[in-house]
Design a protein around this nucleic acid. Structure first.
Length: 310
DNA sequence: CGGTTTTGACCCGCGC
DNA sequence: GCGCGGGTCAAAACCG
């Protein structure tokens, strides 16, 4: 994706409000000493203005560079996620045999490989064993990045699974993803000795997102969190009432459900949304910068002055 | 006191 | 129709 074509980040802060095309004032040399003094004063203030102008110009340059950097890192992140997604999609197609014929389990739904919540010993031919081992190996490799969102490619419901390594001694089935959850149930399932916990987003009923967390039967050091649905409210920090979301920092946090999905399965609309969010974040961080607002004010007043002249 | 967690009861879909 | 099992409800307990 060509970033420059998709968002123009060049800034014209109009830090040179007095372009060369403006008619130069003719100064009468035949002035009295009084006029001479006045002229000297004007010259002095002009040089001050020039200094100020240079300063604002360099700030403008810095800000433009900063925006370019932010945008570059966004693109890099986006490309990285797209690569990850293209690497994951073939593995999803491998499992074609649903173990249970009951109501579609999210794991089955995703063609989830290692039978984390489904019976796994009932039908284990040597072939499948081999596949399972391969997939488990793959899974562990992916875990190097701590959390691995598994998403169906583009067209299915918003269900994703993440694996969270935890201490086996840690019995609290909590997965810290930034969102606030309310537990509404816990069940011991047939194929896994550890209980499964059911969570709803604290913004329910307005937010339909649900989460199931269960310790992996294969690897008890792993928590398997299955997310269903999409948050219809602001990101993790905002929902948490996290101080950092109101503060000065403009950290971009990846939403595992919403953002995770949208970044992996970005369609046009979602790209536009991302653009808007990005722009808003940039805007909010810039407006908090007093120097930037000053430069902006200067830019606007410059434009106004220019317009009033024309 | 309001929000969250716990936990037994209940609901419902599915297979037999 | 019955039993099983996953998912949800809701009252009580808990907590800050």
């Amino acid at each position: 994706m060509d970033g420059s074509s998709f968002l123009d980040i060049s800034l014209d802060l109009n830090t040179n409000p007095f372009p060369a095309k403006l008619p130069k004032k003719e100064v009468s040399v035949s002035a009295s000493t009084h006029l001479k003094r006045k002229w000297l004063e004007q010259d002095e203030s002009a040089s001050e203005l020039r200094e100020e102008l240079n300063r604002v110009n360099s700030e403008n340059k810095k800000l433009t560079e900063m925006l370019a950097r932010v945008y570059e890192s966004y693109n890099a992140l986006h490309n990285h996620l797209e690569k990850l997604q293209s690497r994951q999609s073939p593995e999803i197609d491998q499992t074609d045999k649903p173990i249970k014929k009951r109501k579609q389990d999210p794991d089955d739904f995703l063609g989830f490989p290692i039978g984390l919540s489904s019976g796994k010993t009932e039908n284990s031919s040597s072939n499948e064993d081999h596949q399972q081992q391969q997939q488990q190996h793959e899974q562990k490799n992916q875990l190097l990045s701590c959390k691995r969102p598994v998403t169906d490619s583009f067209n299915k419901a918003k269900v994703s699974t993440v694996y969270v390594p935890t201490e086996t001694s840690d019995t609290s089935l909590t997965v810290k993803d930034g969102f606030q959850w309310r537990k509404y149930g816990q069940k011991v399932t047939r194929d896994n000795p550890s209980p499964r916990a059911y969570f709803r987003c604290s913004f329910a009923p307005s937010c339909p997102v649900k989460k199931k967390v269960q310790r992996s039967a294969e690897d008890p050091s792993l928590l398997v969190a299955t997310y269903e649905g999409t948050h219809n409210h602001l990101g993790p920090n905002a929902s948490e009432g996290d101080a950092t979301s109101q503060g000065r920092s403009s950290t971009v946090t990846l939403d595992l459900v919403n953002g995770g999905h949208s970044l992996l399965a970005l369609e046009k609309n979602e790209r536009n949304t991302m653009q808007e969010v990005l722009i808003q974040q940039m805007a909010s961080s810039l407006t908090k910068d007093s120097k930037f607002t000053a430069a902006l004010a200067a830019a606007i007043s410059g434009r106004l002055m220019e317009q009033s002249r024309t």
